[in-house]
Design a protein around this nucleic acid. Sequence first.
DNA 1: AAGCGCAGCAACCGCCACGCC
DNA 2: CGGCGTGGCGGTTGCTGCGCT
Length: 522
Amino acid sequence: MNITTIKDASNDENGLVSMISVSGGGGHGMAEEVALKKGPWTTAEDAILVDYVTNHGEGNWNAVQRNTWLARCGKSCRLRWANHLRPNLKKCSFSHDEEKLIVLFHSKFGNKWARMAALLPGRTDNEIKNYWNTRVKRHHRQGLPLYLDVHDQPTTPTTPSLCVTPTGSNTNTNTITNFDFLHQNHHHDQHHDMFKSSPVLYPAVLESEHHHHSPISPRAQPSHRSPLSSPPSYSPHYFMDPTPSNSNPQLSSLSFTFQKPTPVPSTPLRFKRYRSYPNFSLYHLPSITPYSTSAPPDQIADLDAFKFPQPNNSSFSPQYFQTPVLDYERMVSPSNFVFSSKLEHPSNQFSQPQLQPEVKHHDREFNDPTFQTSSGLLGDLLFDAQALASGQNSKKRNYFSLNQGNDVFDGYQNFEDCPLTSTYWFSTSGVNPKDEASDLSKCMNEDMSKFLTVMPSTMQGTDRNNNSEAEVSNVQSSSVTTDDNFGLDMKPIASLFPLSNATNHGENQGYYYYWDNLPGLC
DNA sequence: AAGCGCAGCAACCGCCACGCC
DNA sequence: CGGCGTGGCGGTTGCTGCGCT
């Protein structure tokens, strides 16, 4: 059937009517004129669509037009249903927490609105997209970085860290995470990301090496309609700004508790285009990256686009990399250090979440690397990784000490000193711990494993001294991402989940770390 | 009061993945 | 295996309301 728009004309309502020629598949030249309405939906149309979907279920959207008098194309029906009529849609503005999550997700997924929507119950990809686009415009106009605040000076933490603190409080609430976006300092990353994540360019920001704070003009102040408009606490500008917030516990961390969405059989989450993320759910945070020693060669054959230069004298060794097994086409090869060339366009802008407990930040400054790259996102990754490899880094880096109760977990290098509660595991020994943890790995979900796909290059660091190796060990590492820019720093993550001596299989023999006993997992 | 800019939102469009034949 | 229909996704556009000048 061929549908050809013949004309558009204003109809007697708000929308337009597209007169289309619908040619039958028989090719007999029979053509019936069907006027498909465009523009805003009326309540009557909504009622028809709701009734139809109620009786027939979702899908087969073109049948709606055929079986009702609704003069809307299938796409329009689907969109209307998905964005406005389906059950469990939230109609309210984004909450502060949701906004933060969107920022986080965008830093990880890029413009994958549907995936974000899948993680934000009751939200649609369209509204997330709209929110983000508005944010982009606003930040562009104000000269603010998308992920970082212009206040974010080198004295602020650079350490990406994930705090996943299950805090489920009742049986109907699963948990999740404490994401803290405040502690980011990937300036050049942010620039890359801004260019990658949006067609809009940001010359003003790029030109600003110092990220001067751009006062928001009265006119630029969000209107009352904006969910971002209630300064200061409700402004992304504010919450992304760690400088003042450090004195404000409410802004220095954030705990999210999510209502587990009620399954809607008729509206399954679909990941048609992202089948490698079929089960990603925050409710599963954190889960773990299983170990794999290798991937089928044919699966990694096309990953040669970005090979990592490996310094010979570095403690940085491929053996410290382990590979998530679940998605071979999105991996860091442990054998040849190959990064997938299928990076999605945004973001090495790691707006890293952080742990809920109080986190103190300290600066560490490192030397300048010589490694340069022009590849933007990947360049950042390589840049960071190279810096790690060489023990150098031009950026100011930070580490943190974590106060959790009476315990203080200081830095990243003392895993074995931390009291163990449970687990992340990996190996630097070549011994495949996968089998040992097969049960555990069953609980892992793929996406979170991506979150935890990292460069544990410094985890050899049992050295607490200030020699060069220790220095490397203290570098927070770069977040190396695979395809989906899921890359978190292992050390901060691991630091946040103290480990056991029992899991230390000895220096140079690898460590197996475990997170377990975390409520709400698996 | 009018014009303008902005934010928010809804909807459309093109591309493309997928399943079926 | 290729064509076709369907539906999902991301990019984009247009409309509306509000606040400011």
